[in-house]
């Protein structure tokens, strides 16, 4: 799964890949979208931070409560007013909320990481 294929997801406005530090590597933006490369770069940095925090929380939660099933994390999503970003460790996709399919997006970015 590559960025062009991520853009085929319903309501996709942008797709991007990023380094372990959150620097933007590559991106696609739907024409007419308000999303800029600068926003995607910031988003990628926040994704790295949020994935790290979520891993910390998942590990702590499993250890404290004995509940399993969170690790390994498959991804993180931030749900904005008009769009949602779904990311994992390397790829992300931004989709309009009215068309978003979260499960399809999480599955797609998993495949993107494997590519």
């Amino acid at each position: 799964m590559n960025l062009d294929q991520l853009m085929d997801l319903p309501g996709a406005l942008a797709a991007f890949s990023y380094t372990d530090k959150g620097d933007l590597k590559d991106h696609r933006v739907r024409e007419g979208s308000e999303i800029t490369a600068q926003v995607l770069d910031l988003l990628a940095h926040s994704c790295v931070a949020n994935m790290a925090v979520a891993t910390l929380e998942a590990r702590g939660w499993e250890s404290l409560t004995g509940q399993k099933g969170f690790e390994p994390l498959q991804g993180f999503s931030i749900v904005g007013l008009e769009w949602s970003a779904v990311v994992n460790g390397k790829c992300g996709v931004v989709m309009k909320n009215r068309d978003v399919n979260y499960e399809a997006a999480f599955n797609a970015i998993q495949a993107c990481e494997a590519a």
Partner: peptide, 25 residues
């Protein structure tokens, strides 16, 4: 974080954040 995004691209569609999801195994 969304406040920071918004400061770079006003009305980019993120703010105010509605929520978040953590997808585990």
């Amino acid at each position: 974080q969304s406040e920071i995004f918004d400061s770079f691209a006003e009305n980019c569609g993120c703010r105010p954040v509605q929520g978040w999801i953590v997808r585990g195994g």
